[in-house]
Design a protein around this nucleic acid. Structure first.
Lengths: 347, 347
DNA sequence: CTGAAAGCGCTTACAG
DNA sequence: CTGAAAGCGCTTACAG
């Protein structure tokens, strides 16, 4: 049996009101009473029930988070930043890991509502009609992180995926590549599927490079699919001299595949990934990546959500963060490396 | 203003008791009333408050989880398995990411108590006196996953770290290695620090191999420390022919370092890691690892905790899961590979 | 500065 | 089969 405020009051010889006041640090409690109450609290190991408190205050300090895949380094890193900001603001996270299971998501959104979470963070964009309707119905603030669903009414914290993808492709073109392959994502995803594909496509056409059907493939963002799609590309003959994969994981898969075919990265085929995950520095060759500011993304997501909860005027539309190309070994051409060395020697 | 049970009752023209009965699927409600109540619930978008329900039922369906580092693939994988089992049993996770911040942990344990979580899962073993006392004081079941703190009274779900480490070392010895380096963990950690070191040490001495001071180093389980410790080992001269690192991350760091020194893995130095993380299959050469059954560990942790919550007789002591050596390229000797090929050809 | 009472939104005996 | 009432453990006007 948990000790409750009544027990504390009785033992301290005061009213529950007074104990409550001490608990909440209110003024207007005589010092000796306060001291006595605190002593009893300590002695009894009393911890006030947030459940009861939430009920009367109509405030739970809970945030619901829906993660598509906890085992992914990208999402778990965002989550860790979200958690950091949340706990710094006395908010706690209720986390749901839906692995492709859309039913689980709907179930959890209901749980979130029943738990009276004060805000909801969603990190994937495969929103069906049922879920869309649900989100519109409830009056709990909802924010999307790293993704943007079709529905314009939802607010997202994202990078400009189109521009990022365009820039990554342009970089490869500027490096002198004529044929550039593409390993895209799920075309049902607006953000990471469609937008990134459009960026690639338009950069190619703006610079007069032709699209080769066999060099354009789509995976599921994971390592294995990068490997598989690269394999298909290679087996089609006359591979491109560079490949842009829209996730670091797929890029790593592609690198592994290329090397298993006794080709070299970047000498035979240069590779760029997307995300800026921990993998980039850890694989060999190190991976060039169009990086998203992952930690910032988590922090900003939480900060904006906190504002929405507080009822502050929400940002006008989405919050778009800066993307940044970080060049590493997987795309550094030999000539360029030689140039750099020469440059150094001359100084 | 959230709609509440009273609103539903009023609109349906019944008592709140009846609505409550419909909500909880009780029998003894006439079909027409039940239908009407359900229609009103639907119409109003009513979702019962778990807060109020928890208060009267004295049951929150909440589990508190303390993770040392969410961005680590090892912990986030365990967490995802825990989440899977929890949600399958109608339990929800309150997660706290303490990154080395012991104060944050204590704070969160208090939050867990105030939230009246029904069970607590802890995934690290740096328990100080304050935390130890706290855990003993509260009557909420606590379970440790993948680690075992000094205190014998706590129950853990783990592998036999000593034996696993002994076996990994013995494997290298059986491969013909005479000098085997070791990159250990934090010696303040019983499980992953002390036990793994003892396993290595005893295997070496049991097989008459001598310990070389310069070949024994300690890191913090992360990639960078594996790199750094390997570098120290190499710069000491006369490196070992094999190195056992007690985390896959450190093993990958070690491999990268070795290759940056223009040495080959496994030809010049063989490497074994520990954990069985996603990295093992993803790096090149692929990484031999003494694997923990990560997913099973998460599932069993949750299952045992559920039993503790239900008041079933707890397992007698710790739950020890099987470790398993998975041999990959980073430790496969050339001769052996040749043998295998020959073996295949003969068939 | 202190306390009695009402109320947060539910569930659960109890009575009918 | 249905409902009025008490109670879960707190906080918060209100009165003194």
């Amino acid at each position: 049996m948990q000790v409750k405020i009544k027990d504390v009051a009785k033992m301290a010889g005061v009213s529950v009101t007074t104990v409550s006041r001490v608990l909440n640090g209110e003024k207007y409690v005589k010092d000796d009473l306060k001291a006595k109450v605190n002593r009893v609290i300590e002695e009894l190991g009393y911890a006030p029930s947030q459940i009861a408190r939430s009920l009367v205050r109509k405030k739970t300090n809970l945030i619901g988070v829906i993660v598509p895949d906890l085992t992914s380094s990208f999402y778990s890193t965002i989550l860790s930043s979200i958690e950091e900001r949340a706990s710094a603001n006395e908010y706690h996270l209720l986390v749901c890991n839906i692995s492709e299971d859309i039913d689980k998501e709907y179930k959890y959104l209901n749980v979130f509502q029943e738990m009276r979470v004060e805000g909801i963070i969603i990190m994937h964009e495969k929103i069906n009609e049922q879920i869309r309707a649900f989100i519109h119905k409830i009056n709990t603030p909802v924010i999307f992180s790293s993704v943007k669903p079709m529905d314009q009414k939802f607010i997202s914290v994202i990078v400009d995926d189109y521009a990022a993808s365009y820039d990554a492709t342009r970089y490869l073109i500027e490096q002198g590549h004529e044929t550039i392959g593409f390993i895209g994502g799920d075309m049902r995803d607006v953000t990471s599927g469609q937008n990134r594909y459009s960026g690639y496509r338009n950069a190619m056409s703006d610079f007069g490079k032709k699209l080769v059907f066999e060099h354009i493939r789509f995976g599921d963002y994971k390592v294995q699919s990068g490997y598989d799609q690269m394999k298909e590309m290679l087996s089609a003959g006359s591979p491109p001299s560079a490949v842009f994969a829209v996730s670091d994981d797929m890029a790593v898969g592609a690198i592994n595949c290329i090397r298993d075919h006794n080709l070299r990265v970047p000498e035979d085929i240069a590779i760029i990934g997307f995300d800026g995950s921990q993998l980039t520095e850890l694989v060999r060759p190190t991976l060039t990546s169009m990086e998203q500011p992952i930690h910032q993304m988590g922090r900003v997501t939480m900060d904006v959500l906190l504002k929405l909860i507080a009822g502050d005027t929400p940002p006008d539309g989405d919050v778009v963060l800066e993307h940044r190309l970080v060049v590493r070994e997987s795309s550094r051409s030999q000539e360029r490396q030689a140039d750099e060395i020469k440059g150094l020697e001359q100084e």
